[in-house]
Simulated scan of single mutants.
Amino acid sequence: MAPSMRTPWLWQRRRQWAARERAEGELLYVAIGDSAAQGIGVRDLDFSYVGLLRNRLQRLSGRTVRVVNLSRYGARIGDALDRQLPLLRAIIDETGREPDLVTVAIGANDMRDVDHDGFVAGVERLIDSVPRHAVIADLPCFHFGPRELNAAAASRAIETRVRASGRPFAPLHRVTELRRGPQSWAEFTWDQFHPNRLGYRVWESAFASAVNRRARQLRLGD
């Protein structure tokens, strides 16, 4: 997702994630996404949904976790296909194995004027290109307006294809749609677009069950 204007600290955010990438960890977690995966809206990376999921995986697996965040501000499906997936493949080639956890949450920036068939074709390519254990989310609820109509249709298409692939699905649209209404205003930062700490807790809840299962698998050595 992307706010209406860029802020200077976006570059600082990228440096913060780069520092996390250099940290040691027994497990490797790779995130694919847009500015929500960057954690725009919170100052502390641990309160982004990626940071929350990293801490969840570490706590439940009993092992330290290193995060490589491939997400980009303003990214769309095309960016994931053309820039983020090649980086994921490079990581696999370099390490000789797939990451222990991969999460994918992207497509919200495509919803302003979406070519539905082209979007779905991109989603299918993305699904086929990530590991079988990758946890793939649909889109967040926009609450009202044309973008929400687009996001609801796109989310149905994503869920159908993720489930058909046998990969874990994160019901992001459903958990954010349940928060629809004035009560959700407190879950966004100043731009009323990006989640704040509370909002990212809601995002984390969409991934929680799938990440819990993955942590159990890793604890058992799968």
Rank of each mutant, 00 (worst) to 15 (best):
R167A: 06
I77K: 02
E94R: 15
R54A: 15
R59A: 15
I106C: 09
T189M: 08
A2H: 14
N69G: 08
G39E: 06
A170D: 08
I158F: 08
R213K: 12
R216I: 14
L81Q: 06
H116E: 13
A186V: 14
G199F: 11
R20I: 00
E94L: 09
A154H: 04
Q217N: 08
R132F: 03
A154M: 13
I92W: 08
R72G: 10
L10K: 02
G181K: 06
G107V: 01
L28T: 11
L126D: 07
R83S: 12
D79S: 13
V102E: 06
R97C: 03
E159F: 00
V42Y: 05
A170C: 12
A75D: 12
A31G: 07
T103H: 07
A134C: 07
R63L: 10
A186K: 14
I127A: 05
G166W: 09
R132Y: 01
E26A: 14
D113I: 11
R213G: 07
A36P: 00
N212I: 15
R180S: 11
H133I: 08
R197P: 00
A80L: 13
P86V: 05
P171S: 11
L218H: 11
V135K: 00
G33S: 10
A137R: 05
R6S: 13
W190D: 13
H133R: 13
L45P: 11
Q38T: 02
D138P: 12
R219S: 13
V42K: 01
R6V: 10
L88C: 08
G107H: 01
M1C: 02
R179W: 11
G221I: 07
R213Y: 04
R179N: 06
P131D: 04
R156W: 05
V65T: 03
W17Q: 07
L198R: 15
R56Y: 06
R174N: 06
P146D: 07
F207P: 04
F207K: 08
R56F: 00
T64Y: 05
V67R: 02
N196S: 12
D82A: 14
L88T: 05
L220I: 00
T95L: 11
D110P: 01
E26H: 01
E21V: 01
N196T: 09
V50K: 01
E187L: 15
Q58S: 15
H173G: 02
N109D: 09
L52F: 05
Y49E: 13
L220H: 14
L27Q: 10
R83N: 10
L57H: 04
L27H: 05
R156E: 15
Y73P: 00
R6P: 06
A23T: 12
H173I: 08
W203E: 09
L198I: 14
D128T: 06
R66E: 09
T7A: 12
H173M: 04
A19I: 10
A108Q: 12
D191K: 07
